[in-house]
Design a protein around this nucleic acid. Sequence first.
DNA 1: TTCACTGCAAATGCTTTGCAGCGCC
DNA 2: GGCGCTGCAAAGCATTTGCAGTGAA
Lengths: 159, 159
Amino acid sequence: MPFGTKADESSPSTPAPGSGAGVGKEQRVTKQRLAISAALDELDDFVSTQELYRILQNQGVSVSLATAYRILQSLADDGLVDVLRNGEGEAVYRRCAVTGHHHHLLCRSCGKAVEVEAPAVETWAARTAKDHGYTEVAHTVEIFGLCPGCTARKAAGLL
Amino acid sequence: MPFGTKADESSPSTPAPGSGAGVGKEQRVTKQRLAISAALDELDDFVSTQELYRILQNQGVSVSLATAYRILQSLADDGLVDVLRNGEGEAVYRRCAVTGHHHHLLCRSCGKAVEVEAPAVETWAARTAKDHGYTEVAHTVEIFGLCPGCTARKAAGLL
DNA sequence: TTCACTGCAAATGCTTTGCAGCGCC
DNA sequence: GGCGCTGCAAAGCATTTGCAGTGAA
């Protein structure tokens, strides 16, 4: 099974926390989980697990690296944060303001991200897949570039 | 170049053997390089370095894993093969029939790939980036799904 | 009290690199 | 014959996992 296994980004059914009617996997509210969640709230950009770990350390919050991996993965599984792979294949996380299906415009220099919607792309993807007989389609669309700030910085020779 | 170039700060300290003028990096035609190139020619789908390494071994071709990594990277740098990251963040390679900029439609079950062009997406990406003041834009667009064959197989309960 | 969560450290698995010998030009 | 290319093995890294102690419910 080559790839794509979890290339899907659709998460139509939120586990509905609270009323443990379904899955039943309850999460305990711990200091570490809150710390990571809070850190993500303050961050506007995507961060890798390693980066988040360092950030927490600088804040004086003590969280084990392994735990950071576990919590981030857990949050991602629950759809509480967005995950995507940067150019190096590292998993990066971010709490997104926009809910539902959307894509990103990332600065390759500073990591700044902007959420964008792409209705035209959605239809194109669906149509293309259909034309080729593909079903159960999912897709990834990410745009990389230099944000206004970094563009200016580069023009000024500071980059 | 389908991907966001090298997002990292490259390696400015490259010793640049010889004169820094022009490309200068000549490639020697070796048995291993030919073997890998040939293997890629026969493959219709994306393969990771590890997979290609195993394929070569099964064919009785002896190529070191480290060499496979080096050659694949070299081919990718020269634009002779396409590189992209699968859902797991692994780098996967493929010799593409279509030259120039294009995207892929991949089967998440068997790995079968189809090249597709997306003029509408190109313009959308360029326009979106411009609207947000981003420059030097690159983008990734990949579609994952079940190819006709796998769809049928699944419908027949064989998957 | 109970059991999920943590931390620590060892383990994994992919990828890169140092170095000496080999083979293409 | 020179120098890039290979192979081998060790090194490097990010990420995962086993296990026992800790703390939330």
